[in-house]
Design a binder for these strands. Structure first.
Lengths: 211, 211
DNA sequence: TGTACATCAGTGAACGCGCGTTCACTGATGTAC
DNA sequence: TGTACATCAGTGAACGCGCGTTCACTGATGTAC
């Protein structure tokens, strides 16, 4: 039920993709917007599943490897599922408003997937973030607190904040690459990602001893 | 000639916006794709103009302020011109292929606008980047070298690399915010941007004394 | 086992709409004498 | 100054297309007796 291939998001195109006729979809979705919502939820969940699986590929006693595996999986998934990535992180669909009560929990799963890896690394003393990450502005603190409570995600606020920051930086590299802006500049985008994610984690206080 | 407002990029919509009828545009552009190309070039150039202007608002002897002004201008411009930002950095338009020989120089102007601020800060010893930014992978070095040569942008490779990295991180924050992903998490997106850009520059080796 | 009927996934035709594009045209402005 | 003509920015009608959506339908599958 994933709209693979490029993009061209349209009810008719999706029906075609599935070997059906457009009206047939109305047996399963009330409208195009309902279809879109379902696809968005699927995409968020598929990404979260992928991140979790990649993270858990690595043993608990190697938290740096778990972190790196999670970051790499993000890019790999985006490149492998450009339509899904675009659907959730690309230009908003004009006239479509996502139902937040459904999309936010699905999106939060991705924060949790990465946050778990970060928390593990911090607990084992492999990740020692700079001091600014325990003293960030109160307005942000409040928002993260309610995010944590609303989603029953029991984790220190500093971990949550660090998660958002790392996700954001990682996302910058991936969107720019997927939408064709990184290639012309740095050439080897895979190497650039690998190298910069390493740099970022090191700047964030990751100790990289045992590889 | 800017398609303000939300998005809904279509030749007819643009004509409507300009108080004209759709066929009238064919006197100025051969096809919709030509129109789109012109809008993309305008957007890249407008952004570059904005970055340069913001940077040059600050005196040469305060390179940290020049850097921060440039970074802030990027976000401000994106929020003020969401349609233009989306046009150049959002989901690629299906079926449209931008003519690189035109778009790349326009895009490079933005690298140069930021790169100039970075180079200035480094020359004055206010920005002392970590060692990994003078020793990055050879495949990337080669691509940056040809970017530098093709665009007659005479600057050390390490400055160019640092520019790409900072642009990428900055872009991650801005796209996620503009497309609605940051707000639900951190609440105060303006404060988040301000705080994180400061953190990033400090991690990159910026000395912030005279604020 | 065989007939009668209900269920329901999916079809095909049709609708109104906005799109990109073409084409013959209108009508204002500028130039020639 | 006045008439005749050329130029050219913009119009309005029309085209074929893909879209989301509706509706009456078909035909396979399952249940009742």
């Amino acid at each position: 039920m994933a709209a693979q291939g490029a993009a061209a998001l349209s009810l008719r195109a999706i029906a075609r993709d599935m070997g059906m006729t457009a009206p047939a979809l109305y047996r399963y979705f009330q409208s195009r917007d309902d279809l879109v919502t379902a696809l968005i939820l699927d995409a968020f969940n598929a990404l979260a599943d992928t991140l979790e699986a990649a993270r858990d590929t690595q043993p608990e006693d190697n938290p740096a490897a778990r972190l790196l595996a999670t970051l790499n999986a993000y890019r790999d998934w985006a490149l492998a599922h450009p339509a899904d990535f675009t659907l959730i992180f690309g230009t908003p669909i004009p006239g479509y408003e996502a139902p937040r009560e459904l999309t936010i929990p699905a999106a939060v799963r991705n924060y949790v997937a990465l946050g778990t890896a970060i928390a593990g690394a911090m607990q084992r003393g492999v990740l020692v973030p700079p001091s600014e990450y325990s003293q960030f502005p109160p307005s942000i603190q409040a928002a993260l607190e309610s995010l944590r409570v609303d989603n029953h995600y029991d984790v220190p606020l500093s971990v949550l904040y660090l998660t958002v920051v790392i996700l954001t930086q990682m996302h910058g590299l991936v969107t720019l690459e997927l939408f064709g802006h990184t290639g012309p500049a740095v050439g080897d985008t895979a190497e650039f990602y690998r190298f910069e994610m390493g740099n970022m984690l090191r700047r964030m206080g990751l100790q990289m001893g045992n590889h």
